[in-house]
């Protein structure tokens, strides 16, 4: 009689694993759009997607780190703007984190994950700032039409105005070279501090789960 009762079927751990992967990425996406109290320092908030890439890559291969960086980079682009892209920075973060792990310099404990996140936050913000500096800032905002000569989001390049001026008018748009590096300093440092403080929230549960999964699959069936 008892045997007839449906036995509790543990879900396939691999399937469950991918579900957890997808849901944790989604959680990071939602967190990065919000500004929870305590996650900000000097108006700079945690780079949640970067934290996820680090958490993933500490126990994986170079290729796996790179793929995670690519996918999350595309997602971050979708949330902000595609130029400059976040892909480059996050791929570098994934690859480097995986490399560090390969060298066995560090272990997967709280402190080392926080340290890696600190360094990787600075790295990814630096790559972004370099892109801002060296790529043509071809911005990505809509064209306004139907107003004669205007082609700007909100332009003053009215023929009357620019012809009346003796300045050879060129409109400046986007970050100016002199603004990028001071902002980088502030963003990189604040983001590194605040991201490494919050990193365990993502890294700890995920890595405990992956550790458990690994061990359970090593057992003889």
């Amino acid at each position: 009689m008892l045997r007839r009762l449906p036995r509790f079927q543990a879900p396939d751990p691999n399937l469950l694993n991918w579900l957890i992967v997808v849901l944790s990425v989604l959680a990071c996406v939602l967190l990065s759009l919000s500004r929870l109290p305590g996650t900000q320092l000097a108006d700079v908030s945690v780079n949640w997607l970067m934290v996820w890439v680090v958490s993933w890559s500490v126990r994986r291969s170079l290729l796996q780190g790179a793929i995670a960086g690519l996918i999350l980079g595309l997602i971050q682009d979708s949330l902000t703007a595609t130029q400059p892209s976040h892909v480059l920075g996050l791929v570098a973060v994934g690859v480097l984190t995986a490399l560090l792990q390969k060298q066995r310099y560090i272990q997967e404990d709280f402190v080392s994950v926080a340290l890696i996140v600190f360094a990787m936050a600075i790295l990814s913000e630096t790559i972004f700032a370099l892109q801002l500096t060296f790529l043509v800032q071809d911005y990505s905002l809509p064209i306004v039409t139907g107003a004669g000569e205007f082609s700007l989001g909100d332009s003053l390049l009215d023929a009357d105005l620019s012809q009346g001026s003796d300045l050879g008018w060129v409109e400046l748009r986007g970050y100016q070279p002199a603004e990028i590096w001071p902002r980088h300093q502030r963003v990189a440092l604040s983001s590194a501090i605040v991201s490494s403080l919050w990193a365990p929230l993502i890294a700890y549960p995920l890595n405990r789960w992956w550790e458990w999964l690994e061990r359970s699959q090593e057992l003889p069936r």
Partner: peptide, 23 residues
């Protein structure tokens, strides 16, 4: 009226690498 804007939901209007230049 905005042309080729930041995605009209289906991405049809946007150009592959980001959006048209305003300048």
């Amino acid at each position: 009226k905005i042309e080729g804007g930041l995605g009209e939901g289906d991405g049809a209007g946007s150009q592959a690498d980001g959006l048209p230049n305003l300048i």
